[in-house]
């Protein structure tokens, strides 16, 4: 199997300035995420996991160094082009699901397609397909308020993958879920990765370790590759 890099950071770092204090949230980091991998970013709170994910997700610019997505350096992109990049290349899953509350599950999943200018009929068809993949097709008319956390997260996953993005980025996707939902969702992710999707998951939930192809540990802004066998799984 050939290895295709999807996302890379090259000596990328991120500092935040708030008032007089400068926070080095992510120290100089070079990592490569390859196609078809399920990658975990593990680390304690405040270590810089979300910062790294946001860099990969074209949500923020690196302070130093470069970030590549599908071989395109995002440093050179304008805000608008960054929007487009997020829309076309990336699917996001958030800790708090972040479904658009006035819209039904189906409409939420249709959003990324319609934002790309696809017609209603086509978007609907593809959205239903994605919802079926996460087992939510029979609840697609419900608004987020009427769905449980696990169900909302499944809809969010459908929304993240409906566009066929090169990269699916998840920030603590299981933090608000019960064990059964965690298993369901991780099984989905595992299967998606086998099917060639690339998935990066930020977490401090050790239960996710067995699902990973590769693990990075993030600690105090340092990112280092870790072998799966370093974690004792019980």
């Amino acid at each position: 199997m050939t290895i295709t890099p999807i996302a890379e950071t090259k000596n990328a770092s991120k500092t935040y300035k708030s008032g007089d204090t400068v926070i080095l949230a992510l120290k100089t980091t070079s990592i490569t995420i390859n196609k078809g991998e399920l990658v975990l970013l593990l680390g304690p709170s405040g270590s810089g996991k979300t910062t790294l994910l946001s860099l990969l997700g074209c949500v923020i610019y690196a302070s130093e160094g470069e970030v590549f997505l599908s071989n395109q350096s995002i440093n050179e992109l304008t805000d608008k082009e960054l929007c487009d990049m997020r829309l076309r290349e990336i699917g996001f899953v958030f800790q708090n699901y972040n479904l658009v509350s006035p819209l039904s599950a189906l409409e939420n999943v249709m959003l990324p397609l319609q934002l790309r200018g696809k017609g209603r009929g086509e978007s609907r068809e593809q959205a239903i397909e994605a919802l079926t993949l996460v087992g939510m097709e029979d609840r697609m008319r419900n608004t987020p308020r009427k769905l449980s956390g696990g169900q909302q997260q499944r809809v969010a996953i459908a929304r993240a993958l409906v566009n066929n993005p090169s990269l699916i980025l998840c920030d603590e996707p299981t933090a608000s879920l019960d064990p059964k939902s965690v298993v369901y969702i991780m099984d989905r992710f595992r299967k998606l990765a086998y099917d060639g999707r690339t998935i990066v998951i930020v977490t401090h939930d050790m239960r996710l370790v067995p699902y990973a192809d590769r693990i990075y540990e993030v600690d105090n802004g340092n990112v280092k590759k870790t072998d799966k066998s370093n974690f004792q799984i019980n």
Binding site: K80, C83, D84, L87, F92, L99, V100, L111, P112
Partner: peptide
């Protein structure tokens, strides 16, 4: 929050 989500997933 909803508008932020729209922006994050790529709405201009």
């Amino acid at each position: 929050r909803d508008y932020g989500t729209l922006k994050a997933i790529g709405a201009k």
